[in-house]
Amino acid sequence: MNHSNRLEELVTKHEHTLFRAALAILGDAQEAEDAVQDTFLRYLEKRPELRDSDHEKAWLLKVTANRCKSILRMRKRHPAVELLDVYPAPDTDCRELMEAILALPANQRSAVHLHYYEGYTSEEIGAILGQRPGTVRSHLSRARDTLRRYLSGEEGE
């Protein structure tokens, strides 16, 4: 497979995953697109040897998370656009939940998305975000405390 086909395969397979993760961390669609674009640029620059699909997804998520952190550091010059204005929630409950999640600190939002949406364990999230598993569990625990009202109503779902 040549490089162009390889890039196309990667983009097609992971663009939505990366965009969602970036959006979850940044809460801003334009910035999330920038982060995803930078991620694939970094891929082209590095062309890392990735063992399998899981490895490539984790590598790309790690780079995306790092790019998001950089964007967050510079955000004072680039105020975020409200995510829910771009992607409206289907109902009031969902909107309230999303507002609560978006109000979490970025570390907690990252952990919540990777755990509850992508299904990663705290060890895997730690590897992606460059954090100790215990730190990830702490972020998740604090996020759960904040979101308890929503989570308690959904247990077992």
């Binding site: 939505h16 965009f19 697109e33 674009q37 082209l44 939940l97 509850y116 949406y117 959904e154």
Partner: peptide, 29 residues
């Protein structure tokens, strides 16, 4: 977090972004 998953399922990278990404290698910019 079912509502969160449902919400995120509907979030997708735009066609514009898709085209930008595919164009990265040829333009290199």
């Amino acid at each position: 977090m079912k509502k969160y998953r449902e919400y995120m399922d509907n979030v997708r990278a735009s066609d514009t972004l898709h085209q930008r990404l595919l164009g990265l290698e040829t333009s290199g910019t």
